[in-house]
Design a protein around this nucleic acid. Structure first.
Ligand code: MN
Ligand code: MN
Ligand code: ZN
Ligand code: ZN
Lengths: 138, 138
DNA sequence: TTTCTTCTTTAAAATGATTCTAATCTGTTG
DNA sequence: CAACAGATTAGAATCATTTTAAAGAAGAAA
């Protein structure tokens, strides 16, 4: 588990497990995303971060990768504002504060909040997910 | 209260009250929006509906009007999908089912669902609104 | 009602996020 | 290594929304 000795091995295996080739770009992005705790990033943010980390990746690849990671269940998409999407490395059951001033997301652990008595979904439908967004301002 | 006698008077007063000139376009859109129970519409949907009702309004005016009505507190914006916004004529405290198949919103009355123990917002912030989206599929 | 001012509407262009295209490159497997 | 499938990328395209700036309509004053 010494990341200085096997720097890429964990994400490498993760990528293999979900059927994605461990390319230089995906490995680099996976490290940025998963090696630093839970993250909520937009494509542009991640692109800037990659550039900053000397990882050359096109914006198209950023989008491809975020969508692939999300499709593979490694991340999830959070929609709070019209116009742009956030991608969340925390795939466990949880909810969010959204800081309207700074446009930042912050986790609310799943057990710190809960919905009482969710009404029956309309006949013929089933609940896929319940999203709670607590919008806050300075 | 006979709408065939005073067809526009209610929305007319509403517009005056919020400081918006009662123009032909705003009056027509307000009738489409408010005279038929609660609605959840996208700009494109309302534009099509207006055309269908023989009301000539540009798409730019649709956007202007939806944003002005929202700013005036006559409607609110609901964000559930990346890429487009829904505008809701129901301004009371309530939440939503979102049908992922049909991309339609359906109200959940405020008293039919509630959040237990919303955690304290981070220091220096206050809660502006809590949005609950119950995502459902056929 | 005429005039004056301010607000509104609109076509068209601009913007911004995201996706697509199609050419080039790279990882994997034999 | 050879061959192929899959991945990356620059740039174009798309789509929702906003902006621009010119023309039109509403309200106030006279
Ligand atoms: Mn997506
Ligand atoms: Mn808006
Ligand atoms: Zn999260
Ligand atoms: Zn609603």
């Amino acid at each position: 588990m010494d990341s200085s000795v096997r720097p890429y091995s964990q994400v490498y295996d993760t990528l293999r497990n979900v059927g994605l080739r461990p390319t230089r770009q995906r490995l680099g992005l996976a490290r940025l995303l998963f090696d630093n705790g839970n993250r909520h990033v937009t494509a542009e943010q991640l692109h800037a971060e990659a550039a900053n980390a000397n990882l050359r990746v096109s914006l198209a690849t950023i989008y491809n990768t975020l969508n692939q990671f999300t499709g593979a269940g490694l991340m999830r998409e959070v929609v709070v504002e019209p116009g742009r999407s956030y991608f969340d490395t925390n795939t466990s059951d949880h909810h969010h504060f959204f800081h309207e001033d700074t446009a930042e997301l912050q986790d609310i652990p799943g057990d710190a909040i809960s919905v009482s008595a969710v009404p029956e979904p309309p006949a013929g439908t089933r609940v896929k997910r319940v999203d709670i967004i607590v919008r806050i301002k300075g």
